[in-house]
Write a protein that binds this DNA or RNA. Structure first.
Lengths: 161, 161
DNA sequence: TTGACTTTGACTAATCTTGACATTCATTAT
DNA sequence: ATAATGAATGTCAAGATTAGTCAAAGTCAA
């Protein structure tokens, strides 16, 4: 279970800090020293693990008194999360990104386990395996959009199947 | 009872690890070294012996700190209708046929409303709109198959999808 | 001999690590 | 005021470290 890579360790450290607060403010150079890595690795961790899709927003300031502030965002109304995802859906979507988004929907209790498992399974590389990668990623984005739209309909009408 | 077959040996080794846990995480290169085989043989073993039909799901990550994680999933027993549908899935499927099948699943309470709505929306002609009809119907069949397969098992862990 | 299954390795892809260079900001010197 | 300086963070690409794919070659039983 123990991670072999530094990025996961730093991720856990930061998320542990965030578990008790809605935001943390760090010094990039201090954290880098603490974990004995180059400062830019902190940027890598943030860019790959503290994205809006993961439920985080990051602010920072350079120069004297600089900082990096990580905020855990709770979408006010959970239906907003669906709208935000729809609005920001890229043209193409890699499996890993899709997985992160589905996990976010599950954590927000917008999709149940059955629906979540379906989405994961349908959007997996194994299922969507197409000729070229771009076609696959494009289809994945389109399908996830359809999933999301079906969630939005549900808010308005309890349709009979 | 030793098999002359390295793949069988590796299979038994991994299943022994899984007998005491719901999941294991391995390093492909380490296992390969341990059994003195090329790394890609691990992929072969996994692809042929740790399939969802056999009750396993596999996740992996490349790069530094990469891993292969094998999860033992709970195979559901009430899947007669699902199994029949899987066995009789045609090469191509029209939207109308898909709709009928989804309704059957819903009436049998094998899928909930949320999952059912998702399936309807994703498999609709509007969503899958492709150039030619055969391509669309083929994709629809493949996607419904993925939906059905995800109905046949359940993960043991709840926190993560 | 054939056909299914296994073994192997060259090539590809994803992820992490590192460092050089760029940019921004507060403070200090002129 | 303005310029220079130092202190932070940002960007990006090369290199390192994994795992994935695919097809050719090998093995074995019917």
């Amino acid at each position: 279970m123990e991670s072999r890579n530094m990025s996961d360790v730093i991720e856990r450290y930061l998320k542990a800090m965030l578990s008790g607060a809605h935001q943390v403010e760090i010094s990039r150079s201090e954290i880098a020293q603490q974990f004995n890595c180059v400062p830019s690795q902190i940027n890598y961790v943030i860019k790959t693990r503290f994205t809006p899709e993961n439920g985080y927003v990051v602010e920072s300031k350079r120069g004297g008194g600089g900082y990096i502030r990580i905020l855990r965002v709770q979408v006010k109304d959970n239906c907003d999360l669906v709208d935000v995802m729809i609005d920001n859906m890229p043209q193409a979507l890699r499996p890993r990104q899709a997985q992160v988004m589905i996990q976010q929907l599950y954590d927000s209790q917008l999709v149940g386990q059955q629906a979540g498992n379906m989405m994961l399974n349908v959007l997996s590389h194994q299922t969507l395996d197409l000729d070229d990668r771009l076609a696959e990623d494009t289809l994945r984005a389109r399908l996830l959009l359809a999933f999301l739209q079906s969630l939005r309909y549900e808010r308005y009408t309890q349709r009979q199947l």
